[in-house]
Design a binder for these strands. Structure first.
Length: 296
DNA sequence: AATTGATTTCCTGTTT
DNA sequence: TAAACAGGAAATCAAT
């Protein structure tokens, strides 16, 4: 009955994770220049993080994911390969280009981007200093804070992963977070479907896993496809993934053991299929979307 | 304020 | 023996 709720700090997390991380997120990018970014960075830099024109391909991709998410549109409904472009190219697309590239979702994307660009021009001054928590990120972190809050995880001294990665995705990207501005148009746009209910903070565990798999640049050997076409994958650095997940959920005590329990619950919902006999191996089930190559 | 879906936490037992 | 796997039970959290 009585649970030992007291020993919360006894997790050797950082040590184990550190030792597991070796990729671009690991030692290479250890915090050297964090302070700069952490404490009020120059407006110019901020602009670069925020304005679509300066986005990297990955940021474009993030924006896409996020926008679809916000509008409850299935990520499989648009060909992502048409958006394997950086911000400059994205901004060069016309309304028609968007329609060509994303079909019926094109207009919505065009709209969203236009508003973002527009906000980007005036947003900076509305960005109160206290919002600049810093760092940030981790991948699926949102670029578009349509929902009032930004995506900061503000885990102050956890520069295990994030960090000065080459994809400064969401730094201050909480552009329109400022109340009183016209960011609500996006909110009030009619929803395409009601299929999904609440999706706290954008991503579920399985989507988080999927997104790691789908982003080689962001996946320094954390999880690997075993059979791409069948949706079979394997954890290479289970504890590191758990830490990352915990970071996303602002839970520093996440472990693979706990993460895997959540994974097992997915079997019943057919989001994952059981792959027995093989440790750390899972397979996407019929209810998992957006992982197939053909889905893109 | 109550409900609920999705985990999170803990645990005991089994398998690799 | 140390990790993983299996699930049950209960707690937690955020969205509604």
């Amino acid at each position: 009955m009585v649970r030992n709720t007291s020993c919360i700090m006894s997790i050797p997390s950082s040590a184990s994770v550190d030792s597991q991380l070796t990729g671009p997120w690991g030692s290479h990018y250890t915090s050297t220049d964090v302070p700069t970014v952490a404490s009020g960075f120059p407006g110019r830099l901020w602009q670069q993080e925020t304005q679509p024109q300066y986005w990297t391909k990955f940021q474009v991709w993030e924006w896409l994911q996020q926008t679809l998410d916000v509008h409850q549109i299935d990520a499989t409904s648009i060909p992502f390969q048409n958006f394997d472009i950086d911000g400059r190219q994205l901004c060069a697309m016309s309304f028609q280009d968007f329609t060509r590239a994303a079909g019926s979702v094109g207009p919505l994307l065009y709209q969203s981007l236009t508003e973002l660009r527009w906000n980007g021009q005036y947003g900076s001054e509305l960005f109160a200093p206290l919002d600049i928590k810093t760092e940030v990120d981790d991948f699926s972190c949102s670029i578009l804070p349509y929902k009032e809050e930004s995506c900061f995880y503000s885990c102050t001294n956890t520069d295990l992963f994030e960090t000065k990665d080459p994809f400064p995705s969401s730094i201050a990207v909480s552009t329109p977070a400022s109340p009183g501005t016209d960011t609500k148009k996006l909110h009030s746009r009619p929803q395409t479907s009601q299929m999904k209910k609440h999706n706290p903070r954008g991503t579920h565990l399985w989507e988080f896993i999927r997104d790691i798999l789908l982003n080689p640049e962001r996946n320094p050997g954390l999880i690997k496809w075993e059979d791409r076409s069948e949706g079979v994958f394997r954890f290479l650095k289970s504890e590191a993934v758990a830490q990352l997940w915990g970071k996303k959920k602002n839970n520093s005590s996440m472990t693979y053991e706990k993460l895997s329990r959540a994974m097992r619950y997915y079997y019943k919902r057919e989001i994952l299929e059981r792959v027995d006999g093989r440790r750390l191996v899972y397979k996407f089930g019929r209810n998992a979307r957006g992982w197939k190559e053909s889905d893109k």
